[in-house]
Computed example of a mutant assay.
Amino acid sequence: MPAGSLKIRLWRPGSRAGASFAPALLFLAPALCGSLSAQTHGATRDPISDRNGHPFRTPAGSPLEPAHRIAFYRSVRDSVRDGIALADIGDRLQFWIRRDPDGSVEWAGAIHGGAFSRFDLAGPDQSLIEVHYRIGALLRARLGALAARAEIYHVSSHLGDEFLLDTGTEPISTSREGLEVLVQGSPLSGLTIYGGPGLLLRSSRDLERVSFRAGADWESSRLAHARLYASLELFGWAELGWEPALAAEVGAALGRGTKIGFGLGFGPSRAEQFFRKSERLLGLSISHVR
């Protein structure tokens, strides 16, 4: 595609991309309906607990966290401008919690997983570019005003067949397992901050092992049936010389975990197959995180 041009076309009925988007839309629709119909009055949630009362609130604006998400972005990579769509499906299952009698210490277990897909809206068939999968086992804890999460995770990725045929790109295996530990706190009303290190335990290639992630989520007090929100996350990896990948988003939270906002990203790509390429993203995102 010539630099400086951008063609964004929504999928056509019966196209392969439309069939690929359908599962994500089906998963996201109930979340949207549930949020819009949820009660919007009541007690404010604990800033370091999720809405089910388990310690450590999932960073809602993080592109690394499994979530139900549909996003349309303008992407700039290597001076080429493209229209892309993200269609993610992800959720978590909380299966155990233990609280001390005084309530100051909590322990909880969970698993989560998701598929993160990227589509080419500028191509004739809006074909799949890349999909990667993340599954993790979580141990979460709370001690007073601080929460923490340790995750053992697996990530693997694949390029779309049509993308390989059209571009001649050589697929890169990024299968890996790792450990990440995040600590979370709420220094101000409505503001949650988090951060911590990651360590690769095994990878299909010889990659540097250490990474670091930090971020912040903010929500306003309730305005009518919604809240304003903003999120910011930075991710750095020794493999990339600690060049930061930034993801930011602002918009409206519609109740029980659903958000609509404008997203911005730049730095190394969060698409696993292109993690050595820098890109800039700007567009609209609709997401639901439990």
Rank of each mutant, 00 (worst) to 15 (best):
G215T: 05
R140A: 11
N52K: 10
Q273N: 07
E130C: 05
P66L: 05
L93S: 13
R227I: 05
Y73C: 08
G103R: 01
H54P: 00
A137V: 12
L284E: 02
D88E: 13
E272M: 11
P2C: 04
A38S: 14
G136W: 01
R9N: 15
P13H: 07
A29K: 06
K7T: 14
G14K: 09
E106K: 12
I89H: 04
L121N: 14
E65P: 02
Y133A: 07
A60Y: 07
R69M: 07
D166S: 15
I84V: 15
L207S: 09
R276P: 02
K259T: 10
L254A: 11
L138F: 04
G265W: 02
F275T: 13
L281M: 01
S278A: 11
Y229H: 05
Y133S: 10
A43F: 01
G114W: 04
E130T: 11
T167L: 05
G136Y: 00
A122R: 07
P63T: 11
V155Q: 11
R77W: 00
S204D: 06
W107F: 15
L179R: 04
L165T: 15
T167R: 06
S221W: 08
P244S: 08
E279K: 04
S157C: 01
Y153M: 05
I70T: 11
A145E: 09
K7C: 08
G42I: 02
L234D: 09
D120K: 05
R81H: 07
A141N: 03
R142L: 01
W96D: 08
R140Y: 02
E151M: 09
L228N: 08
Q184L: 08
P101V: 10
F274V: 09
L246Q: 11
W107A: 13
D217M: 03
I97R: 15
M1K: 14
P101D: 14
E170S: 13
D100R: 15
L165Q: 15
A150T: 14
S287M: 12
A115R: 13
E249K: 06
L281R: 09
G53I: 10
G198P: 00
P124R: 13
Y153S: 12
R270F: 14
S189G: 11
P63M: 04
A150E: 09
P13D: 10
F56Y: 09
L121M: 15
A147W: 00
L139V: 12
I97G: 14
H158Y: 06
F116V: 08
Q184C: 05
T258L: 04
G168I: 03
